[in-house]
Nucleic acid binder design. Structure first.
Lengths: 188, 188, 188, 188
DNA sequence: GATGAATGAGGTTTCATTCAT
DNA sequence: TATGAATGAAACCTCATTCAT
């Protein structure tokens, strides 16, 4: 009777991958990932056909995680500012809590291992916040700019803010708040 | 006298490295770099003791390049806005003209190969624009935020703008201009 | 269960190492050793983490071999002379039968690859003959000399004898016997 | 007419070779030797056509050095014992004073780089002590053994003694003396 | 399904030697 | 003659992937 592929083991491999890649970059070996996951090196390949696929699925997983965090308790009916602030805050708190996951996410994003398929899938995942982002584009000063500009702008200001928030844990809350105000002022 | 180490060859290796890394990531092999540079595989190591050093010097070179571009014709005496706009425009035109160099610069920046020494050296290189950046920090709405926030913010908005400018060559000039207005509004 | 690391293969690698090193010195390449052992070049490293370890374990193996030969049929209860003669004869017959192994043992011994750990382990292995060696030290004319002198002396006379025994196979038995007499006379 | 380039430089290279080889074994690179000798890496090859030749000439040089030490003040007319004791003492004092040179000599001797030509030349160099060694063979208890046995035996006992003398500098003189007595007793 | 030994291409680096200067 | 840059073969070792058990 064939044992079933265990989702727990799959998750362990992905978690291990995060850790190893955060430490050693994308060059982290599959063997080291398997070892940390507590499975045999060969077993990794029963869960992922090859390293490239593992990396792509890992990225998807990380994105799913961020967006599920952002989507949770999303104040659908609130003002645009309130919704934007929610996105802002939730993303930053995830990034601060999970620095390794975030680092790996960045690494994967700038690398060339992500397939167009993966990129498309990520777009799909964004889901619930998409309308808010589009509204941001339409109603902001950026409306002469491409539609996605406002959203990309928000992302990049988050990155900036993140660096400072990480380095100054004590002022974290204040920093995040003030930076959002700057952002909102800019865009509104 | 034997032949002297030729700066031209050193440059060729660095250029080749840009090309290969843009194509294959930091995993690009030293052999492929040497080959593209037109030197024997071993010769690479007469110019750089090891790959890590090559990568660090490459980063320095790229940064030197950007900053020399930004520093050139810098309107010292002009208004803060004019100076900020100069930085904005010059950086973006470099990034657009040299997409490979820019990509490699980003790759190196997020990787872990850069030594603290290299990071410190880069800071030194920024040179002439530093006072402008500090002034930006002081005189902007971001003045409750850390001093470097304004500068980091400018950087990240440049990244955002860059993506759009690259994808829409025709609206490029306009995009760059409008985005700067958004930035200035935000910060001012 | 995957295949288990096969002791036979490990042995084959060690044997191959003996052969290659006897031919080319310690510079013998791991690739050539693997090839002669009939395994892939990479497989060598599943048995030994690196060349240095391979060399150290090889030395240990060779010493184990000599001492197991010397310890076998050791005439515990016999006279000191009989015991010394046993050591003398057994070592020499091993060295004569296995000239390559002996050569490699010497090469390793004068090189700097042997760790202090390995040296200590070898000392442990000597085992059964140790008391005889100490007795030799105590009861010999060398007793004013350091305790290990007698034993070192025996070793070095064996080396001398070996050279001649190898070159004159016909007189071998006689040579070994006469040389022992000289030794015994000297020490007694 | 023998043309001498710069004997001083040649000597510097040989001295540097001793040092480097003592440190890193025969794998010491020609570049490191040249560097330590204070000449350019290429210059080494104007003094020695290749590394192998360098090594062979180095061995010859070292042997010349020992034998010139042993031959100096050789008490031609003295008793056999006095002459043997002279050889014994002089060699040991050289070995103790020049541990690096001695180590390199041993390394070269057990390696396979020495040509038969070199070995033959060394035999020639022994010169003045040869008759004494032959006499030792004839007049010793080893006279049933091959002629060179006595001489080889003396050598190997010297090695043994050397180890102890090096490790116990304070008892050095006494050790050397006592060990000679053991030797003489054995052989006489 | 799980395991980990086996594989061999490929990576970085070293080095003896050559040769332009 | 002296120099040291240039060369490319070869060394050691890693690694994604396969497959016998």
């Amino acid at each position: 009777m064939a044992r079933l592929k265990s989702p727990a083991k799959r998750g362990a491999i992905l978690d291990a991958a995060v850790h190893e890649i955060a430490r050693n970059g994308l060059a982290a070996s599959t063997a080291s990932i398997a070892k940390r996951a507590g499975v045999a090196s060969g077993s990794l390949f029963t869960y992922f056909p090859d390293k490239e696929t593992l990396l792509n699925e890992l990225y998807l997983e990380l994105k799913r995680e961020v967006y599920s965090r952002v989507n949770a308790d999303f104040p659908q009916a609130a003002s645009l500012e309130a919704r934007a602030r929610h996105v802002w805050t939730q993303f930053l708190s995830w990034a601060i809590e999970s620095p390794e996951r975030r680092k790996v996410s960045v690494l994967l994003n700038v690398s060339d291992v992500l397939t167009t398929d993966t990129r498309r899938n990520v777009a799909t995942i964004r889901g619930i916040i998409e309308p808010t982002m589009r509204e941001l584009g339409r109603r902001s000063v950026a409306h002469g700019l491409p539609a996605e500009f406002a959203s990309a702008f928000l992302s990049s200001m988050q990155e900036t803010t993140l660096d400072f928030a990480v380095r100054q844990p004590k002022r974290r809350k204040e920093l995040i708040d003030r930076a959002f105000q700057v952002f909102w002022r800019a865009i509104h």
